[in-house]
Every structure is written in C-alpha cells, then in structure tokens.
Amino acid sequence: MWTSRRRSLASSTERGCQHGVVPGCGARRSWPPIMPGGIGRAPEWPDQRRPRVASGPVTNRRARQTHHLRRDRDLITKTYRTWGRQEHHREWTTLNLLALHQPGLAPEPISAELDREPPSITMTALPGDPIVGYWTDDQIHLLAKAMRRLWDVPGDRPAPIDMHNAHYWRHLAARSLRPASGVELRAFDLTVDWITGPALNSLLDGRTLQILGQGDPQPGNMLYDGRGIRLVDFEDAGASDVCFELANFAEHLGARGTGLDRLADLIDHDHRRYHLYRRLIASFWLFRLLPDPTGARPPRTAELHDQAVRLIDLFD
C-alpha cells in the first residue's frame, strides 16, 4: 500500500534554508544527524561526531539499528530493517495523529509504503539536535510542554506495546540467565518473584492506558533547537499510562546522567504507580544487561552490578 499526504512546498532554496541544508543561510541544523533506535537501542552518529548541546556524561552505546534513514533535502525516508511488531504502522499512525492534532511537534508524514518489504515512510526533516549530557531546568520545562502535547492527542491510538502485557515480562524473565551470586542474584530473584506474582497483573490491567505514549524516551529521540523540543521515532508509540512514560524517562539506560527523571516533578501522576513502573522498567534493563545465552551480547559486568543495586533500591 502506498499512502500520501498532500503538502505545499516552497522553492528549493527556501526549503533548503528553512531546514538547514543550504550552506551559508544561517539556519539551524536539522534532524536527522542521528539514526534513532527503539527501546534499548542507542542512537548512531555519522562519523562518530556528536553535536553537544549541554555538557555531561554520555551513557548511550552504539547498537544494531532497526532502520535506515535517507535524506533528500527537506525530506527523510525511513526504511525499516525490522517490522515484526508493526513498527511502521505504529509510526505512520502516530505521525498522522500528531500532524492533525499537534502540528510541528513531530515530522510531518508525506508518504508511506507500508505493505512493501522492507516498508518505508517519508516525512519532513526537523530542526534541532539531541541534548547530550545534563538537561537544564529550562530544557526540562520545554520537554514537559512537548510531552503534554503528545499525551493530549485524542483519537484511535496504536495498540499498547508488549511491555504493557504481563506475559511479556514473564517470558523475558524465563529466558534470562540467573546470575550465580552477589547483588545481581538478589536483584534477579526479587524481580522474578515480583513479576511472576499477582501484583504485576494489577499494575498491567490496561485500565490506565489513556494517553498516546512515545515508548522510547532516549535523548536521541528529542530534538532541541534553542526554543522548543520536538519528537522523532515512534516505532514504540501506542496507548500508554502517564506513569509508565514518566518512569521510562527516569529509568531508561540511555538517559542516565541527563536529569530526565525531573520531568516527573512537573507532571501530575500517581506516585505509587510511578514507583512500580520504575521498578518494572529497571527490571527490563537488568535483564538486558545479563549475559545473553546465545552469546550475541557482550558482558557488561560493571553496568550490571550498578543496575542490580539500583533495582534493589526500588524494592525498598
């Protein structure tokens, strides 16, 4: 299926200047300087150059990309390398909802080949860069404004991602290697006991999935142009819970050292459910940092230890 949205285009020079692709026009840089991935996937920077907007530690790691981005002046074509979770449909639906209800917050959808293998989506480029390091208070307030716009979008949202299903977590725990000893073993056992118990069913009963969530709040998916925050990468978008989204900002491994957990101070939420979702998402990262039974992932011993300590604290 080929789908298209009609839009008016300025002259080539105007478009290039507006999106920062004509040398000497003084426009801001525009997306994509990176190839953002989904949850657990770090952004990829061409030639290993990272635009630095704020100073501080960088915790993201390079990882296998789930898509390829090709730029043609002010348009971006995203071709998916994996689409078994209907990532392309999620993104196309979300971009159209945002174009209708919150224009300017995300790329404008232009056309899509959703039934082709591999599927692809063409959208507009955006100005701005990811913020690297610790976010200022002003940047956190701009992020809160952007997220409120996203979460206020009405209409038929994509279905919730699998992380909102208790079976997903039990399957994840069952296929993870149990550590031999230490805080890693204690964190693993606490997590498995909780995930396999009745409390998780209550948390994930679906009654609080009332907003449109992005699902992957790593800093590479948020672009700052000095005046506002725009959002990219909606492969994991779908019906969600505000508490889940806030917890994801607090616990995403790629957001460590950024201060994105301060977003929760600006958004009304249920504090108990927020804490439980933080525990749940921290559990995801514990499982992800464990040695892979297939040997596909290299061991990350120091990070695993730190994550185990962090997770145990969330059980206190």
Rank of each mutant, 00 (worst) to 15 (best):
A180I: 15
P33E: 13
W151L: 12
L75Y: 08
A302D: 15
P107I: 02
E44N: 09
R300L: 12
P23E: 03
W45I: 01
Q86K: 14
C25M: 04
G128M: 00
T79L: 08
E44S: 13
H271K: 15
H164R: 02
P198E: 04
R62S: 15
G84S: 12
D306W: 14
S11Q: 07
Y168G: 01
Q86R: 14
G26D: 02
M222Q: 08
T94H: 05
R278Y: 09
R62I: 11
E251G: 03
A125R: 00
R178W: 10
F244E: 07
P118N: 00
T3H: 08
H269L: 09
T258E: 01
Q18K: 13
A54N: 08
P51S: 01
N221S: 14
G257P: 02
L95H: 06
R157F: 13
P217G: 02
S120D: 01
H141N: 14
E91L: 03
R300W: 11
N165W: 11
R149F: 08
S283L: 08
L150C: 12
G84N: 13
S240Y: 05
L75G: 11
T13M: 14
R279T: 09
V242I: 15
Y277A: 11
G24V: 05
V22F: 07
S176E: 09
G206C: 00
G16D: 06
P291D: 02
R29G: 11
R272D: 15
A144L: 08
M35P: 02
T82F: 14
G257R: 03
V309A: 12
E235W: 05
R73C: 06
T93I: 12
L75T: 14
R41E: 12
D270V: 04
Y168D: 01
D72I: 05
P51N: 01
D268S: 15
R149N: 13
T3W: 10
P36M: 02
L246S: 05
G26W: 04
I140S: 05
E245G: 07
S181N: 15
